[in-house]
């Protein structure tokens, strides 16, 4: 009986949390489309999220592309299929590793930063101060962050991540594995389809939405002092990563399920 009650409580609290996040998301997104708008705040967030995440995203995908090339070469040589390396690298990076790794890296960087910043604003009454200054915190704080992440993830970070990831594989293959540069590029271009790029950008947009949503939700609802900010930051990163992995599967099924 107690066990059943425990399960019931867990389910109810999960549904309650999901409902709260859902309402928060609807509220946040609806404020993107209604004035007043804060272009300065949007620009500041776009620079913070997009520009300052570039180095870490680029480094991650560069080495991942190279490592992927080594793995594919070693694996495909077992059945004399080394020539498939460029195709597998480009599809692997563009469809899967570029957006997912960028998403996870940006979740660690941006989600945590949003949760910590908004959480500190909450516990130091800065969010209350916004209200007393006739400013809707959803319009000033949440909407620009969500919009900036949804724009910058596909249009800057994942395009760069995909390109650098493929470049990592190309550099490794041409300098260490003896691939001809022209053939490698031709194979890459020939086998990359528009739908691969579409899937990559769609994933990036969806991941960007969850990264900002989780960062903003947990930060905005922070309770307590420094410990509360710490808990919010952890929850933001963990939940953003879970949502990225979950939505990655859903979007992949949407695009490529036969």
């Amino acid at each position: 009986m107690n066990f059943l009650a425990l399960i019931g409580r867990v389910v109810i609290s999960f549904l309650r949390a999901a409902g709260k996040i859902g309402l928060f998301a609807v509220n946040g997104v609806s404020h993107i489309f209604t004035p007043p708008y804060y272009p300065r705040e949007l620009l500041r967030q776009m620079i913070n999220i997009g520009y300052y995440s570039l180095p870490v995203v680029g480094l991650t995908t560069l080495f991942t592309g190279a490592a992927l090339a080594v793995n594919i070469y070693e694996g495909s040589s077992r059945f004399n299929a080394e020539s498939t390396l460029p195709t597998i690298v480009v599809i692997g990076i563009v469809r899967e590793l570029g957006p997912t790794l960028s998403g996870l890296i940006v979740a660690g960087r941006v989600s945590a930063s949003m949760a910590a910043e908004l959480g500190t604003m909450r516990v130091t009454e800065q969010i209350d101060a916004l209200v007393t200054l006739s400013t809707d915190p959803f319009k000033y704080l949440i909407a620009p962050r969500i919009l900036a992440t949804v724009i910058m993830m596909p249009l800057m970070l994942v395009i760069v991540a995909d390109t650098i990831g493929v470049l990592g594989g190309y550099l490794l293959a041409t300098t260490k594995l003896g691939f001809n540069s022209g053939n490698y590029i031709k194979s890459t271009v020939d086998f990359l389809e528009a739908i691969d790029v579409m899937a990559s950008l769609t994933k990036a947009g969806v991941f960007g939405f969850f990264i900002s949503l989780m960062g903003c939700y947990h930060g905005f609802n922070t309770r307590g002092g420094a410990q509360g900010v710490g808990i919010s930051t952890t929850n933001a990163v963990v939940s953003a990563c879970i949502m990225i992995l979950l939505s990655n599967y859903v979007v992949t099924e949407m695009f490529f399920s036969s």
Partner: peptide
């Protein structure tokens, strides 16, 4: 309304 908060609540950014 205007309000002076206990910790001033100035916007860091």
């Amino acid at each position: 309304f205007g309000m002076l908060f206990q910790g001033a609540a100035l916007f860091d950014s």
